[in-house]
């Protein structure tokens, strides 16, 4: 199942995209593309229909919380993992109430990201 899992990264950092690709591709995941802000993310989600979305919080134009809100209105079953440098209790609770499956903090361990995705697909 993991071999056909398509992942979209919504994060303004090219370094995070690189790190996610490095963690996931050897495990058989396909990291489809990167969106640099929430607005671009919503557009790419509509076109690419990824199995899992890795979503940052702090981004220009539209942040991760606003993006998740808009996304779950369109698709309440979307599989979203939030990956952020921030991880305070209020933020993680809010994200999970909205429908975010898992909340990981940066810096992340590759094996942690892999097991997180496997746990929700």
């Amino acid at each position: 199942m993991a071999q056909t899992c398509n992942v979209l990264v919504v994060d303004d950092s090219p370094m995070v995209f690189k790190a996610v690709k490095r963690a996931l591709e050897p495990e058989g995941f396909q990291v489809m593309d990167q969106a640099f802000n929430g607005q671009e993310g919503l557009e790419k989600i509509a076109v690419l229909n990824p199995d899992v979305i890795i979503l940052d919080v702090t981004m220009p134009i539209m942040d991760g919380i606003q993006t998740a809100e808009a996304l779950f209105q369109r698709n309440p079953t979307a599989k979203v993992i939030m990956l952020s440098a921030m991880g305070d209790d209020d933020l993680t609770s809010k994200a999970k109430r909205m429908g975010v499956k898992l909340f990981l903090t940066k810096p992340f361990k590759p094996e942690e990201l892999v097991s997180s995705i496997r746990s929700i697909i």
Binding site: S13, M15, V16, T58, A85, M86, G87, D90, T105, P107
Partner: peptide, 19 residues
């Protein structure tokens, strides 16, 4: 780009404790 993300992780970690 690397320094930007490195700083983001430092400040994000600090902000988490403050919040």
């Amino acid at each position: 780009f690397y320094l930007a993300e490195f700083t983001n992780m430092i400040t994000g970690s600090g902000i988490t404790v403050v919040n």
